[in-house]
Computed example of a mutant assay.
Amino acid sequence: MPYTEEEGGRLNNFAREPQMYTAEEPNATEKRNYVIFGVLAFLLVGGIMAVAVFASSAS
């Protein structure tokens, strides 16, 4: 575990702060992939709900 040393030689067990970075805006390909994955997720959830409705009324 990393320790930080203060003046006078005292050790502290505080976590070190991670290095910061800025997020980059997604490019056109990544945006297209987000749309495709969103549509696929919507179809999957809709299909599961359709199966649940059909199964509950099939008795």
Results as ranks from 00 to 15, higher is better:
42 F>C: 13
37 F>L: 11
13 N>I: 06
18 P>F: 00
50 A>L: 15
28 A>T: 13
30 E>F: 01
21 Y>G: 04
58 A>S: 03
43 L>G: 06
44 L>F: 10
30 E>D: 02
41 A>K: 01
50 A>S: 13
7 E>F: 05
11 L>Y: 14
32 R>V: 14
26 P>L: 08
1 M>H: 06
29 T>W: 11
51 V>S: 07
52 A>I: 08
3 Y>M: 12
6 E>W: 07
32 R>F: 13
30 E>I: 01
20 M>W: 05
57 S>A: 12
3 Y>W: 12
15 A>T: 04
15 A>Y: 01
40 L>M: 11
47 G>Q: 00
19 Q>C: 07
11 L>E: 04
31 K>F: 07
6 E>D: 13
41 A>I: 10
18 P>C: 05
45 V>G: 01
14 F>D: 08
1 M>F: 05
47 G>V: 03
27 N>E: 07
13 N>H: 12
11 L>C: 03
30 E>K: 07
19 Q>I: 15
55 A>N: 01
40 L>A: 14
23 A>K: 15
36 I>M: 01
2 P>T: 09
43 L>M: 05
53 V>S: 08
36 I>Y: 06
17 E>H: 02
5 E>L: 14
59 S>M: 11
46 G>N: 02
3 Y>N: 10
3 Y>K: 13
31 K>E: 10
59 S>R: 04
51 V>E: 06
22 T>K: 15
38 G>S: 05
47 G>M: 07
52 A>P: 00
1 M>K: 07
43 L>C: 06
7 E>L: 06
56 S>W: 12
16 R>W: 12
20 M>N: 08
46 G>K: 00
5 E>Y: 12
37 F>A: 12
14 F>C: 00
54 F>V: 08
5 E>C: 13
55 A>E: 01
4 T>P: 00
54 F>I: 08
56 S>G: 01
32 R>L: 15
19 Q>F: 11
44 L>S: 09
54 F>Q: 04
34 Y>K: 13
21 Y>E: 09
54 F>N: 02
15 A>I: 02
17 E>I: 03
9 G>Q: 03
4 T>Q: 12
20 M>Y: 11
20 M>T: 04
41 A>S: 12
19 Q>R: 14
32 R>D: 14
50 A>H: 11
59 S>H: 08
45 V>H: 01
38 G>D: 04
51 V>N: 09
12 N>S: 13
48 I>G: 03
13 N>F: 12
14 F>A: 05
4 T>N: 09
36 I>G: 07
40 L>R: 02
8 G>V: 02
26 P>H: 04
36 I>H: 05
6 E>M: 09
46 G>P: 00
17 E>M: 05
27 N>I: 06
47 G>L: 04
33 N>W: 13
25 E>T: 10
12 N>E: 09
52 A>C: 09
58 A>D: 01
6 E>V: 08
25 E>G: 02
51 V>I: 15
14 F>K: 05
52 A>Y: 08
38 G>P: 02
55 A>G: 00
13 N>K: 11
50 A>Y: 15
45 V>L: 12
52 A>G: 06
10 R>Q: 05
42 F>D: 02
50 A>D: 06
35 V>E: 14
33 N>Q: 15
45 V>I: 13
10 R>S: 11
21 Y>Q: 11
35 V>D: 14
9 G>T: 05
16 R>C: 00
8 G>I: 04
24 E>M: 14
44 L>N: 03
40 L>F: 06
32 R>Q: 15
27 N>F: 04
